[in-house]
């Protein structure tokens, strides 16, 4: 446990100092990865803690992003705090509405029905003029972090974006860690472990699942908003099933149900993507093969490497 805290501290320190060392290119890349890490964390709440494998989580990521695209005035910068709150609220509301229908389904049916809902949202943005169709929306201005007349930081600066995203990642991580230890979080893990028994012990399982789905959707919306804020651009691809698949892969790569895994997975996924695409144009083949090998030989994900290694050294039996 203590080792983990040390590892966490080192990782935080490295992330905090990173913009001082890297070029703008890498600062922006790591910002992007941290946004994906928030997205993966939000999915971990569903998959890793509640046991709900969603294959449509990108819908809420996309809705958070589109909220900024649609709310931002054409000739003025949007207010960061207002649009951020609106984006999280929109994504959470969408997840609540979708959740009412989907959390009754289980297993493979849940996967299919979340995919179906996500595709519906995708085509709403893709095939109607509502969000600029398949071209999406370009924003002319970055949101302004104004509190009254006080502007604490400037989102046109890559370093400021980096630290804002970093702060969001740490906040979401700590929030989910606290949540996972609370009565609510432990009940979710009980549902993942044995749903029937939770019900016969008196837990209103449906309501717990719906709350988890809504919260996960809202946090995905936060990630989507940050992505739109960073790139100044939204299009329907943000909601596509590829995006839902990618975030699931990040989670599987890093390891489910630990929160660390989600963050590690996001970094590993983008690193592998960068590495393989510099070698060949068929990089997805290599990425696929890597993930298959990883699932076979390291079912706990990358986050389990340290504990496996330690077990190997001490010689204690695994599991």
């Amino acid at each position: 446990m203590r080792r983990r805290t040390v590892a966490l501290g080192v990782a935080l320190g490295l992330l905090a100092l990173f913009p001082l060392a890297g070029s703008d290119f890498y600062t922006e890349l790591v910002s992007k990865v941290m946004i994906l890490a928030i997205f993966a964390l939000s999915l971990d709440l569903l998959v890793g803690y509640t046991g709900l494998v969603s294959f449509g989580h990108a819908a809420f990521y996309g809705i958070g992003a589109y909220a900024l695209g649609l709310l931002a005035p054409k000739y003025d910068p949007a207010n960061l705090w207002l649009t951020l709150a609106a984006a999280v609220a929109c994504a959470g509301l969408a997840a609540l509405i979708v959740g009412v229908f989907v959390v009754r389904a289980r297993g493979i049916y849940f996967i299919m029905v979340t995919l179906a809902f996500a595709q519906m949202f995708y085509f709403v943005f893709h095939d109607t003029k509502f969000g600029g169709g398949s071209d999406g929306i370009s924003m002319n201005f970055k949101p302004v972090a104004a509190i009254g007349s006080f502007i604490p930081f400037n989102l046109s600066d890559a370093n400021h974006v980096y630290y804002f995203v970093f702060a969001a990642l740490v906040t979401v991580f700590l929030f989910l860690r606290t949540l996972s230890r609370s009565s609510f979080g432990r009940a979710l893990q009980g549902i993942r472990s044995n749903e029937e028994r939770m019900r016969s012990l008196g837990f209103p399982v449906y309501r717990y699942k719906l709350a988890s789905f809504t919260l996960a959707g809202a946090l995905a919306g936060l990630a989507g908003y940050l992505s739109a804020m960073q790139f100044g651009f939204v299009n329907p691809e943000l909601l596509s099933w590829h995006q839902s698949g990618n975030v699931l892969l990040m989670l599987i790569l890093g390891g489910l149900g630990s929160l660390y895994g989600a963050v590690v997975g996001a970094f590993a996924f983008v690193a592998l993507e960068e590495l393989f695409s510099s070698v060949t144009t068929h990089w997805q083949l290599l990425l696929g093969a890597t993930i298959i090998l990883l699932v076979i030989f390291l079912p706990g994900g990358l986050a389990s490497v340290a504990s496996r290694f330690r077990r190997l050294l001490i010689g204690a039996p695994s599991e």
Binding site: L179, R181, S182, F184, R186
Partner: peptide
């Protein structure tokens, strides 16, 4: 049996 289960910031 605990009615305060929605206190998400409190360790169970």
């Amino acid at each position: 049996r605990e009615p305060r289960t929605l206190r998400v910031f409190e360790d169970a």
